[in-house]
Design a protein around this nucleic acid. Structure first.
Lengths: 220, 220, 220, 220
DNA sequence: GATGAATGAGTTTTCATTCAT
DNA sequence: GATGAATGAAAACTCATTCAT
């Protein structure tokens, strides 16, 4: 006889096992799913394991979420929204463009620090580029990019023409990629403080960005 | 229900079907696997389909490769090496640092244009970030990064200290991320020529990079 | 994912939702179950959906019926009894044997017209021939058959011997089958009026039936 | 440790267990599936059990048939075709219309006797009326009906008008239902020989049928 | 009289992988 | 050098049914 490890990872706080209100259970499942997807990736994560970790039976999960895909999408969206909020809030608290970008960057890296597992779902997951989730993933990246475009537009004061917008879009997406890639590196060098990371990145791209903005403002 | 035999995608040229020398078969399988992984992603690609496309039975594949994982890893490495070669060759043909970086960038984007399907395996695949393949993937990125570090080191003429090296490494990886992300954007804007892409990116990062190099050279 | 509450199909008339006397609730559930089984068939019909349609929770259903099977059986029996009543009543209103059979037939087809969904449960349901329900189904068919035997016996005036009874039973069951099959055909040709259907069938079987009756009357 | 009963129902004759040619395995699976569906009905029959009975693993089944549905459909069609062949052959051997119908009926009942389990799949299965299989089922019934229409048309010598054809179709389908229902009765009275069953049914419907034919021939 | 939350046992289906020939 | 036939293990998802309140 096999003894399956039978301690659920999470006994939802303050509730006796097996009788948890719907909303609470939903949150718990989302949290555990975030972690599980981060650890295993979409495909390798199994609903069975999620159920085991939550200490519930599978139908409970399917009572809360339609499918594995929908559960994953929900995780991703939730995390993406949280990240966008944090960054936007931080940006809003500064007025000088460079300071704003710096504040946003710091908020970005701090979020990764706090929500390690959630962030991995966002950027490091194998499936994040799966066709079915590409939409959500690129929406997130685009949101970061848009924020930056907005920032740059403020700086320049003029609206760029079509070609200019195309270029700006490409560049901000490239920068978003730089953030993501740097995040992965950071994962292995956690001793670097978020502020320093932000400064490094700003020193690298700010000159080019400023130049670009001027160029675009001048071109039409 | 079994797929009826039908026409294998590839009848290896110059050989009667079913009697192909080992090395040729290996190459053929790698080519088809590249394509298949690019189309479907690692998980969704099935050995059955690969066998069907190759017009052989599955044991043949297992005679050449230990497992699906190993096959995938081999595809990735092969493509990565090809890319690195192209870039290195292009870089070698220029002498001015900025021109070298530009030449490398153009070679990079041209490779993507030529080897669309292979490149997707490299960067766009869902699994590329799977734990099992992370090693290979980051090795490729690192190779790009190293190349750039080398480039920058030449420029500055002095070797940076430890902290400097850390920072340089982080930044070059960030830049590699920018390239990858820009490539994904390019996928949807193929009308932009590789040279223009390269110029955009250089305009963005060159000022920061130059500055960084000077700074690092000065610091010790 | 749970279906959001939405509007139950039936708010039992004259009662506040959620406070309905037992007998009324039972009837309501049977009506809805009839409809549901007719629409989906036994297997595909789910207790969840029944509960939703009734606007109650599942335990309520289980408080009224032991199991899905028992619920289905109850539906079938109820409908069967209704049908038998209608036919018997119609038969009683005529005196000539042929006219009696005709009246019964018309009543039969009219019932189908009125109670379309209930009838489907009776004859068209996939499960009606399931071992577990065969009993109930054949009881209904037998009731029709018995009625006819009775009719024929009246006509002949003599009781047939054992062999004769066997044959008569077989024939009346065959005729019941003809009714059922014709009903299915009618489903796709609803423009034919019940009276015409009855006449067609009578023209077909009456000569043989009369003959059979005489033969059986003569044989002992 | 649980000992699952491990004698497969069928060790395919003449082959060592586990190495059976494709065509043979296909036939074996169809035969066993026929039996299984007959015993349990479509829903209650599980692929697991079929695999167990065949002494193979489930993937073997899925290598031969796309899905449970397709397997069932194949069973049904195969049996239906066999039945139609037998009946048609028997009919062809007589020339007088009544004799032809009688011969066909006898062939029909003999088929049931021989292929008991297959026949149950045809008529007694719960799912035979499932929307997904209705097509196949009604095609079979219609084939019987068509055969009879053909027979009757020969007798009358004239083609009936539209209304006449509608009526004839309805009646022949009704008769097909009578056959099916009588078959079910026969299941419990196997002592009656097929010839007697056929005679009973012919005595019942022939007079009406003949009349109908004349009537239809006269009407236009 | 009624409910929200939960479950056990099952279903079909898929896939990488390997004998025996 | 190659194949036809087979498998073990697991996956996602469903459903009738029942506590505890």
């Amino acid at each position: 006889m096999k003894f399956v490890a039978s301690f659920p990872d999470t006994l939802v706080k303050g509730y006796r096992p097996g009788r948890v209100p719907r909303a609470v259970r939903s949150e718990q499942l989302l949290d555990l799913a975030d972690r599980l997807f981060a650890e295993r990736g979409f495909h390798a994560a199994s609903m069975d394991e999620l159920a085991r970790r939550a200490g519930v039976s599978k139908p409970v999960i399917y009572d809360h979420f339609d499918s594995k895909e929908q559960l994953f999408a929900t995780c991703v969206r939730r995390t993406g929204e949280l990240l966008a909020d944090r960054v936007a809030t931080a940006v809003r608290e500064e007025s000088d463009p460079r300071a704003r970008l710096r504040a946003g960057s710091i908020a970005y890296f701090r979020f990764l620090q706090d929500q390690l597992q959630a962030w991995i779902v966002l950027f490091d997951d194998e499936e994040m580029r799966d066709a079915r989730f590409a939409a959500e993933a690129s929406r997130i990246r685009r949101r970061q990019s848009d924020l930056m475009i907005h920032l740059m537009a403020e700086t320049s004061g003029t609206a760029p023409d079509h070609e200019g917008r195309t270029r700006l879009e490409a560049m901000t997406l490239a920068i978003a990629g730089a953030y993501e890639s740097l995040s992965l590196w950071w994962h292995k060098h956690p001793e670097v403080p978020p502020e320093e990371l932000a400064d490094w990145l700003l020193d690298l791209i700010w000159p080019g960005l400023e130049q670009l903005t001027k160029h675009l403002a001048a071109s039409p």
